[in-house]
Every structure is written in C-alpha cells, then in structure tokens.
Design a protein around this nucleic acid. Structure first.
Lengths: 225, 225
DNA sequence: TCAAACATAATAGTATTACTATTACATTTG
DNA sequence: CAAATGTAATAGTAATACTATTATGTTTGA
C-alpha cells in the first residue's frame, strides 16, 4: 500500500491554531520541526525558541501559528488520532467478519507502525513516540474540561466510540465497550513506555513485541461468550 | 477496621527528600499542605511559594525538605503505593483461595477508598486524586531512567510484581501477569479521570461505579482456563 | 500603476516561576 | 556555657512562556 492518506486532508479542530499551519511553508516547517524536536527533547525541554532556531525563524513567528506549546502538542495529537481513525475506516471497510475487523483494528492501534508499509506521514514513528511520551501531559490536566468544551477531544472520542462499536459487533452483550476501547488505546502506549524504561512492569522479552499479543488475548477472551 | 496502618512506618526512598518530612512538625505540614494544595491547583499551578504561604512558612524552608516540586510529587506517589502495597499484604494474608485473594486485590486497587472503613491516612481521597491526576507527569518523563537508577520506582515495581504473583496463583500459565497488573493499576486511575472529565470514553452511568466491575470481569475472563 | 490595506515576520521586551546563595536565629550537646 | 548543629528567612538569579510594538513584504482596487 502506498501513501494514500498523504493526499487525504485530516481535519483538525480550528481552536488549536491561530493560523492553519497546513496553509503555508513556514507552517509545515513548524509541524515537521516540532515533531522532530519535541521527540528529541521531550515536552518540558521543548521551547518555541529552540524550535525557531532549529527551523531558522523566530519565536514570535511560531506564536503567530500557535498560542502555546500546549496547543501545539494538542494539534499534533489531534492530527495523529485523525490519521489513525481514517486508517481504521479504510482498512476495515472490506472486512465482513466482525472478529477479523476487530483483529485488524487492534493491530492498527497497538502495533508499532511499519514505516515501509503503513506509514501515513514521513515521520509517523517520531509522532507515535510523542503520543506515547507526552499525551498524558496535555490530556490529564486541570484545563481538560474547558478544552473539551471547545471540541478539542472530539476526534479522539469518535475514535473510541468507533472501536467500541466494532467490539460490540463481536459481542452485542458486552457491557463495557468504551472502557475496553479506551483502556486498550491508552494502555498499549503506556505499556510501550514501560517496556522501554521500566521493563519490570511488563512481560516484554528481548525484541519480540508482546503488546499486540497481550491485547489480542485480553480482548478476545473477554468477549468470548 | 481501624487505622492500623497509621502506626506503620511506610518507608520512602531516601533520594526523594533532603530532610525527612516525617521527622518534624514543619515536614508534616509540608506533606499535608501539599496534598491539599496540589489537589486543589493541579501540579502545574502548584508552587512552593503558594504552599509556603498556605502553611505559613517560607519558600526556602520548603526547599530544605524537597529539592523540587517534582521530587515532592514523587515522594507523595511513592508513599501512596507503599501504603497500598502494605494494605494488600495485610488484607490478603489470611485468604486461602487464590480467586478470593485476587478479588480482594482488585478491590483495593480499583475501588475508591471508603474514608470510614479503609482509610490509611486522613486525606487518602485527596492523595488518590493526586495519583489519578498527576502521576503521569512525573512517571512519563525523559528523566525516568535516571530516577529509576536511584530506586525511585522500586516500591511501585514491587507492588506490580506482587500483584502479578497473585494473578499467577489463579492461572499459572498466563503469560502476561505483569502487563495485566500494571495496566489494571494505571488503567483504573485513568478510567476514573475519564469518568470525571471525558465520560464518553467510558461506560460509567450516573453514580454507579463501573471501574471495579470492569476489571473484575476483564481479569477473571482472561484468566479462565 | 501605485498606494492603501493587509498579511507576515522580526525585535525587544515583561512576568512568572523554579531554584540558590547567603545570612540569621534557635536548639542541642559535651 | 560555648561550639556544633539544626532550622528558617532574605534576597536574590536564570530560564522560559508569552506579548507589545515595529518592520517588511504582498495583495488589491481605483
């Protein structure tokens, strides 16, 4: 499969930027540069000044596009989940069997992206690492209610409810489809962080990838009637 | 049950403080005050200056005990998991049946503490809320490797491995006990955050508490042979 | 064609906050 | 009772998130 999605416009909530970065050259440089630099430094150490130096512009110019680094990270996260949601829709469209559909969905959500095969964007792996490492910092915040009000999380909520629907196709009576979906999505990223830094919290041995297997086992056992 | 644990000394890693707060009156005021204030303001808005004003001391005095607010939060988290680990040990000691032991463990880890019955400390609920809301901010960091080196997470790792052992008592062949344990511990807190702020990511209706039921169902179905 | 209107970018700041160096006061101990 | 030690207060510095203002193109309409 080629980069079909590269040409598909992923809509991102208007409240996340001052000026749409996809409409200008500098905007694109801000996005690409921030993915690289934020992944390299981490959210705390990442600053607009360092970004500006990196992409050869000024701090204030970055502020023309994003009112804060918090909003910039939200933009990246939003865009990422938009891509994933689109991938699930496209790649499960022609699958009839609910079990196969769910299996594919679990794969998309929990496996590491293969840059050769299913990469949506040039730096998907770097972006995924940002999701793994930094998501919690903007999601688990005192401001979450206000941000939720302006629709910042609607993309994510739609994704969870779509996955929940696929879960219910496999077992109509399962009472916690949304919890199962959201805990898989969040948990798989967290398990990856643990595997890299606190491996004693996991059962990942050497280089074999146990995250996808863990969730396949967990979810299909739970949904078994 | 009374506050048996109030008299039990919970050991906290020496690297987390400059001066042990449990050894002085001001130290105790710093702990109690920071639990209240951090819960109220959130980690970002919480500062040592605000804390100092609240407990009628000075910013510098607080720095005598903790070298940063990051370390202070780590201290609180460490202490909390120390309490929980002790509770699990004590409250499952006399249970013979592995299934009953696991059921009790899941209850301790996923249910909200009942202030009347099983409260370890005066402000356990406030501390639990801090764990729910702020844990990720100190755990998911670029510094995690260095902090892990000095043993900051050993309490938490022991807890996970104890729960994993209880899981394996129920099913010896289950291949992912640590992942199941850590994803329950982290996931239950996250689901509580979602329930409060992004309820569409959960299946919690009204005031009934679905978190414990969700994990009971999930884990016992997964471990069924 | 040319200047008014607007978009974009650069300069030079301010306010906040995490953290520290130094000094002062109080308490314990031989 | 004085030396040693523990504890607290004052007055900073450095970093960083963010802003106010000015400068430089770019487009648009008579």
């Amino acid at each position: 499969m080629q980069n079909i999605l590269a040409s598909i416009k992923i809509p991102v909530n208007q409240n996340l930027f001052l000026k749409d970065p996809s409409t200008s050259e500098l905007g694109q440089k801000i996005i690409d540069g921030s993915i690289a630099l934020m992944n390299q430094l981490g959210f705390e150490r990442f600053t607009f000044k360092k970004l500006a130096i990196e992409i050869q512009t000024t701090e204030a110019s970055v502020y023309r596009y994003f009112e804060s680094k918090h909003k910039l990270l939200l933009y990246l996260i939003n865009w990422y989940w938009g891509c994933i949601a689109t991938r699930i829709t496209l790649e499960t469209r022609n699958i009839e069997l609910p079990e196969q559909k769910l299996k594919k969905t679990i794969h998309i959500l929990t496996a590491l992206p293969n840059p050769e095969i299913d990469s949506l964007i040039s730096n998907e792996l770097a972006l995924k690492e940002i999701i793994i490492n930094e998501s919690a910092k903007v999601l688990i915040t005192k401001d979450v209610d206000e941000e939720n009000k302006v629709g910042v999380f609607s993309v994510y909520k739609t994704l969870v409810s779509n996955v929940a629907a696929i879960i219910n196709e496999v077992n109509r009576d399962y009472p916690y489809p949304n919890m199962l979906a959201s805990s898989m999505i969040e948990g798989s990223n967290q398990q990856r962080f643990f595997a890299a830094h606190l491996p004693k919290l996991t059962n990942i041995k050497e280089d074999s990838d146990f995250v996808e297997s863990f969730y396949l086992d967990l979810i299909f056992n739970t949904l078994k009637k």
